[in-house]
C-alpha cells in the first residue's frame, strides 16, 4: 500500500467503548425478534456475531443502524445513545454499513455506487487506494451495478463504505455464497482493516472466516447472546461453538 497506515492506537483508545448494547429488543411489525441483546465493542476491536440462520445476527446489525420497525433498550455508539435516532443521524456518528443483501444499486454504475455514500469523517480511503485494494472494481467502474458478479458486488459494498471515513464498520455476512478465492481476497481486506485500527462487527454463520482475526465472538440464538468467546478461548471452546452452530 502506498498510503500511510493509520497511527497505532494508544492504550486509552483501546479501552474506549465504541459500542455498548444493553437489553436490546427489536421488532419487525408484530414479531419480536431480539430478546435482550447485551454486548460491548471497544475501539479497534473486531467482533463477530455468530449463529444459525434466523438467530438474530442480521437483526442485531440492522438494529444498530436503526433499520428495524421498533427497538427498545440502549445502543450507545461513541458515547451517544442512538436508540431513538433515525438511521441517517446514526450513520453520521461514523458507521459504515454493508448489508447482507449487499445493496448495490442496479441503476447506478459501479463508480456511482462507490461515490454514493457521503463523507462522514475525514481520513477515508481515496479512490486510488480503493482501486489498489480492489483492482477488479477499477476495470468494472463504468459497468451498471446490476451487471457485476456476486463477488464484485460484495467488494463494491465494502469498498464504498471505506471511502466515507467511517471508522466503525458493520459487515453483514460478507462471505455468504461466494467462491473460495473471493472469500480469501475478502480475508486479506478484513485483515488490513484490522491492522488499520478499524472497529469491526461482523455477522457470520461460522467462525471459519473470521475466527483467526476476531478478538471476540458472540453466539446469538433466539434473539439473545448465549455465549461469549474470547479469542484465546477459541480452541478450548471449539466444540461448544460447533454445537451451537451445527444445523
Amino acid at each position: 500500500m502506498q498510503s500511510q497506515p493509520k497511527a497505532p492506537l494508544s492504550e486509552s483508545d483501546k479501552s474506549y467503548e465504541q459500542l455498548r448494547i444493553s437489553d436490546l429488543h427489536a421488532y419487525y411489525g408484530e414479531s419480536h425478534v431480539l430478546h435482550g441483546i447485551d454486548l460491548q465493542v471497544r475501539r479497534g476491536e473486531m467482533v463477530t456475531l455468530l449463529g444459525r440462520n434466523g438467530a438474530g445476527r442480521t437483526t442485531t446489525i440492522r438494529s444498530i443502524m436503526g433499520l428495524v420497525d421498533r427497538r427498545s433498550g440502549s445502543i450507545v455508539v461513541n458515547g451517544t445513545e442512538t436508540v431513538h435516532m433515525s438511521p441517517h443521524r446514526i450513520a453520521r456518528l461514523g458507521i459504515g454499513y454493508c448489508p447482507e443483501e449487499r445493496g448495490i444499486f442496479a441503476s447506478l454504475s459501479a463508480e456511482e455506487n462507490l461515490n454514493l455514500p457521503p463523507t462522514l469523517r475525514s481520513g477515508g480511503m481515496s479512490l486510488e487506494e480503493i482501486y489498489e485494494l480492489f483492482p477488479n472494481l477499477k476495470d468494472r467502474r463504468k459497468s451498471q451495478g446490476s451487471k457485476l458478479s456476486g463477488g464484485e458486488q460484495q467488494m463494491l459494498a465494502i469498498a464504498r463504505i471505506l471511502r466515507t471515513g467511517a471508522n466503525f464498520l458493520l459487515l453483514d455476512e460478507i462471505t455468504e455464497g461466494l467462491a473460495p478465492v473471493i472469500v480469501e481476497a475478502l480475508g486479506r481486506v478484513v485483515r488490513l482493516l484490522k491492522e488499520r485500527g478499524y472497529t469491526v462487527v461482523m455477522a457470520e454463520q461460522s467462525f471459519a472466516f473470521a475466527g483467526p482475526l476476531a478478538d471476540r465472538h458472540y453466539v446469538i440464538e433466539h434473539g439473545q447472546v448465549v455465549e461469549c468467546v474470547e479469542a484465546h478461548e477459541l480452541d478450548s471452546k471449539r466444540d461448544l461453538l460447533e454445537s451451537y452452530l451445527s444445523v
Binding site: 438511521p87 441517517h88 454499513y97
Partner: peptide, 9 residues
C-alpha cells in the same frame, strides 16, 4: 433505507 443508512437525510 440503505441510502438513509449511509447518512443521507
Amino acid at each position: 433505507a440503505l441510502v438513509q443508512a449511509f447518512g443521507i437525510n
